[in-house]
Each structure stands twice: as structure tokens, then as C-alpha cells.
Simulated assay, not measured.
Amino acid sequence: MTCLPCAAFAAALLMVIAATADFALLAATQRPSWEETWATIKAEGKAEGSVAFRTGASETREYRQALPEFEKAVGLKIQLISGSPTDLATKVVAEQRAGKPSADLWFSGASSVLNVFVPAGAAKDLKPLLVHPEVTNTKAWYGGELPWASDWTLGFGASADRGIITYNPNLVDPNEFDSYWDILKAKWKGKIVMRDPRLDGVESPRTFLYVKLGRKFFIRLLDEMKPVIAPDARTAAEWVALGRYALCIIGCNRAGEQAEAQGLPVKAVFPKILKEGFPVDMGGSGLTALSGSPHPAAAKYFINWFLSREGQIFYQKATGNFSLRTDIPKNTVKPSESIYPELAQHHWYGWKYEGPRAESQAWLREIMKARGF
């Protein structure tokens, strides 16, 4: 016997399934492809015509030199203003509070973002702006994950700091060092110059030593070794070259490279890998979206272009820095900027230690002030 209600239900169910399938097919045919979506983002960005970013990164000179090629590649006019990260960040916040924001993006590390922008509400969530599949594909990034330095800052480049110890080879035998604790040997008392570890620009080596060796290292360094703080990195490197000091620690490696290239007796990269390894950090290679962006469409387009394969190949070529994308060649990376992927077991990733970064700075300000620095 046929069940009429059952037959009616089955027929109705088939109609629903058919209608659902038709709707899904229609939605699929109407949904724009990724290429169409990207074309729209690109067109809207180019219609605004320009993007403005502020940077306190050390690569500013390289960015400026490559600016015409940069603008040609992305199809936007780029307004670049550089300076002290703290001063620039303060100005960005002041402009926003006055209702006259002039910057779209921040190119630098996460310190100013966390210390200045976030408390003032001056940084916005970057995640919704990342839409290009080449950008969101975690397999394309070093370590298999997007390199977030904080909830607001995405890192795109990094370098290994093999130069925490810069030295005069006529005065120092690297074979005497197995650990960073060896800096505290009595023979180096009065023979150490360093950058001020309280500065924003030396957060990577400072935080590395703080996490790896602890507060005791800095207390002994200041109290026993009597280091001298140089006014800047170039002066520190010159003093090492002249033999006035045997070692420069914390933030001397770039100036040391320049001195070494001039034939002066300075070695900027320590030839041995010490027991604690070495820091790999993004330095100024971080990207943050700013609140009140005057060119929101151009900023969204630029962010995704810059973080794509094309943009990061351009970044590496322009700066010589190491992009954290794994799907691009590294033939334009300067040796001093490599993160030495083959030595990954020795890496210490600085961008994962934002808490100790701020903590170490605040603590050093306190104890160094008490000691008359």
C-alpha cells in the first residue's frame, strides 16, 4: 500500500533539494572570482591615487632611493616621512586627536605601536585588511604562520643579529668566548663600550640578553665591567677600531659593518655561535594600519600588494633585507641581513617576546638611573 503522506513528503523534499542546488549554483556563478575581487581592490586603491606611511626603520634611506621604482610598481604615489619612532608616533596621535590624520600606515617595529598607538586608539585591526591569498597563505611564511609581532603589527622581514658583540680583532680572540657570560670576564673590565640599552632601537639584543641571561647579567655588566655608553653607533665603532675599547655590545653591528668595509680593524659579526644562540628579529620591518586613514582603499591595496610575492621580492631587492616569505628567491639578500635558515636551531625569535621587551626597558631605565647613567 502506498503511503500518500510519505510520498508527498518525499516529493516536497526533492523540490527543496533541487531548489537548494539551483540556489547554490546561482550563487557560485554570481560570486566574483578572486581575480575579480583583487581587480576591484586594485582599482579602488589606484582611484585614491596615493598612500602615506611613516617610518622610523633603519631602512629609510633604501626606501627613499627605491621610491620611484616603488611607485611605478604599485601604481600609487607614496608619501614617506621618516624620523625618530617616538617623535613620529607622537605626531601621528596628535594629528588624529585634532581630526586631521595624514598617515595611513606605520612601517617600523612594534614598540611604538604598543607604547603609543594602542593606548591612544591610533592603530586599527590589520587582520580584516589581509585579503590576498598569497598574503593569508600561512605556508608561504617562515615558520608556517603569519609573523605577528602584536595584534596590530605584522612582520614582513627579519635579520639575525650575529653582531651583539662587535670587536677589534687585534685585541680579542673569539675562541675565548663560548657564552655571552664571557663578556663579564675580568680582563674586559673597562674595555667595553655599548649603545644605551634603554633605547628603542636596540630592543632586540637587549631583550635577548634579558630573557636568556636574566637581570643578573646586566647588574654585573654595569657594576663590575664599568662599560661606557657611546653617543651613537658610529662613535662606538670608531672607538673599537682605534683600540680605545676592545668590545662593543648591543647595537654596534651596522656601524661595525661600515667600519669593517673601510678596512678598519673591526669585526661586526661574531664568527662563533655562542651557547645561547642569537636573536632573529624584525627590527623596523613591521607593518601597522593606522586609525583614521585618509586613503583607506589605497592603504588596503598597498598592504596586500606589498606583502604578496611581487611586493616582497621588490622589498628584498630595494633593501637587501630578508623577507619572511619562503616562496621567493633570496639572491638579493645581503649576507649581513640573512637569518641563516640553516641555523634555525639557534634562532631566538624576538617578535614573540613583546612583554619582556617592554619590561626590560623599564627595568633598565630604573637601575641605570640609580647608577648615574
Rank of each mutant, 00 (worst) to 15 (best):
K226W: 03
T20F: 02
Y210I: 02
I303G: 00
K42F: 10
S159I: 05
K91N: 15
K275W: 03
W152D: 04
P101R: 15
L287S: 10
D200I: 06
G311Y: 06
G286V: 13
E44S: 14
D151Q: 14
Y353I: 01
K330D: 12
P227Y: 11
G292T: 00
K139E: 15
Q262E: 15
L221E: 09
K272P: 03
G45E: 04
P205T: 03
I328N: 00
F53P: 02
K77E: 15
T40N: 14
E69Y: 05
P341I: 00
Y301V: 01
I229M: 15
Y167F: 15
C248P: 06
A268N: 07
W34S: 12
I192M: 03
T86K: 13
K317L: 02
L13V: 05
D200L: 01
S179W: 08
S150G: 06
E71V: 12
L171F: 08
L154N: 08
A255C: 08
A358W: 03
F373P: 00
G277L: 03
V266N: 02
V51R: 00
A122N: 07
C6N: 09
I273K: 02
L287V: 14
F218M: 10
M282D: 07
I303W: 05
K275G: 06
R195A: 13
P329G: 09
L25G: 11
K267Y: 05
V228R: 13
S338D: 14
T20L: 03
G143C: 05
K212N: 07
T332Q: 13
G350D: 06
A52Q: 07
Y142E: 14
R64Y: 12
V118K: 05
G251T: 00
I250V: 14
P279L: 03
N170A: 13
P101I: 02
G243S: 08
V93G: 07
A186T: 10
E44M: 09
A27P: 02
A246E: 13
D161I: 09
A98Y: 06
S179T: 14
P169T: 07
K139V: 07
R309Q: 14
R325Q: 10
S308Q: 10
W181P: 00
P101C: 09
L324S: 00
I313C: 12
A298I: 00
K100P: 04
L213M: 13
R234W: 02
K42I: 07
A140F: 13
A7E: 12
P169K: 11
R195P: 01
P205C: 05
T207N: 01
F107P: 03
L126Q: 12
E342K: 08
K185Y: 07
E36V: 15
S111V: 11
K330R: 14
Q316Y: 05
A7M: 12
T235W: 09
N115C: 08
V240T: 09
F70S: 11
D196Y: 04
R31L: 11
L80T: 07
L25E: 10
K275N: 12
A18T: 15
W305M: 12
E310S: 12
E145W: 05
N137G: 05
P85A: 04
E48L: 11
Y340P: 00
A52Y: 04
H132G: 01
E337A: 13
N170Y: 09
E257S: 08
V266Y: 02
P335Q: 07
E310M: 03
E95T: 06
K216Y: 06
Q262R: 15
W38F: 11
S285Y: 02
S285L: 12
N331M: 02
A98C: 09
Y210W: 06
P294I: 01
L67R: 06
